[in-house]
Amino acid sequence: MITQALPTPRISRALIDITPAILLGLVCLVLWEAAIWLFKVEPYVLPAPSAIALVMIEQFPVLAVAALVTAEEILIGFILSAVTGIAVAVIIARFETFGRALYPLIVLFQNVPKVALAPIFILWFGYDLAPKVLLIVVIAFFPVAIGMLSGLQSVDPSLVSLMRSVGAGPGTILKRVRLPHALPQLMAGLKVAVTLSVIGALVGEFAGASAGLGYLIQFASTQLETALVFAAILFVSVLGLVFYYVVEMAEQYLIPWAPKFADANNR
């Protein structure tokens, strides 16, 4: 009823929604700029927003190449984390005895500070893509596995026994009931994982790399090019945002029936 009364199309409504945030952001930038001028802060300590913008324009090719390298790591790492997480969850749910053995080990492994593994991966696999992807998988598969697993296991037992009673095997029940039922929680896990993937890529590059935004951040900071550091951080943030948004779009496409979208459906 209420949504019908509002003829405003979706996009312009979204614009109205974010306008205050944009205004506040601009105010902060202006204050930042003014403070640098006022207190005469050295640019290698904290550059002004205008200086950062300038560097972004001047160094755009460098930043873009670095962003592509990091984006590739994130993309491959994230996809592999998703596949690993889903596979682990399905195996635990499907093969109970094996699952009982595997689950505690995974929880134990989750408590290892994964970041500390980065130097070892560099040692094993060199300075290229592989160690970063591996680090991302190790960091990001866990939320996927946990989300997927709790989704698989939270199916109404009555429904499962009903399926079983008409002769459905565990495989059929998995495919037709458990997997679709797990999608909302899987998507929640994927959203955490995509954020962790960005962190994993950066940490991997810090530990040893010859390209990428993380490498650029580290290199620029040793040269006291702080403005370039900030520009690279901005690029990473945008990259993370884009990946997150893609996952969210996938969610709307895959599970339009999820309770969180119910209002939109009833328009």
Binding site: L159, A168, T172, R176, H181, I255
Partner: peptide, 24 residues
């Protein structure tokens, strides 16, 4: 038919009515 309907939330009413026979 259970006390609480126990339907599949991602299926339509028609598919919900159909899926058990489909499985059986």
């Amino acid at each position: 038919a259970f006390q609480d309907a126990t339907l599949l939330p991602w299926k339509t009413a028609l598919d919900n009515a159909a899926f058990l026979l489909e499985t059986a």
